[in-house]
Design a protein around this nucleic acid. Sequence first.
DNA 1: TAGGCCATCTGGTCCT
DNA 2: AGGACCAGATGGCCTA
Length: 241
Amino acid sequence: GNSDASSDDRSSSPDLVVDDSAGGFFSNKMFQKFCQENRQRGAAGESGMECCSGGKTKGRSELSKEEMQDLRLKVNSRERKRMHDLNQAMDGLREVMPYAHGPSVRKLSKISTLLLARNYILMLSSSLEEMKKLVGDVYSSSAAAQSRSSAHHGMTPAATSAHLPLHPLAQSLHSLVGTPAPHSPPSASFLGFHAPVQGLLKDPLHLGSSYRHFPGMPCPCALCQPLPTATSTLHSLSMNK
DNA sequence: TAGGCCATCTGGTCCT
DNA sequence: AGGACCAGATGGCCTA
């Protein structure tokens, strides 16, 4: 189920147009050439064709014209399905990316989707690290305060921390950092996405036409996202093969 | 009209 | 041997 696909006449996962029909298949120039060559060979002599018809396992060179066509159709169909699956996965990735979705918005290109996803992951990673640090700081400061107070009342620090209610800030941070739901994108409100800005950037990757920039948060788009220092080493790895 | 993006076909390579 | 994966080629569609 891809919502974008319905709004985009250039869906990356179009309904399977199986061009098994002669018209579709023979429209391919290379295949036409192949058939032409085959016809020429056939005109020169059909003996090669007859010798191998009826065998159970044949080499590809021994296949008849029809069998070759059949094989080619099967391979093409598999390749189409593979590409459709890949595009479906790409659509799934687009759905969880922080950019404007909608009928009036052009879909991110594949390369833009991948680049944006990469930067988005880097941004989330650095945010998570920051959150963890914050939680640690809050814990240590409140524990220090409690130990002072409990020492005053003759209690052990361990006993107090076990029964202490969490600092309100620590509680809220806990709810944010504590148990991330697998396979679910971070909530929009958590990321501060509730007040989208309409200002769009111009950029060579065509991110600008579909990407929204949000106030108060580092922008994950390929252009304006400075890589976090902790993960900047990943940059050198980039996406090179 | 050039350039970008895409779907499809195709042959080669690798893996099971 | 068959299937998956990959990259090159090709042609169509769209936009600036």
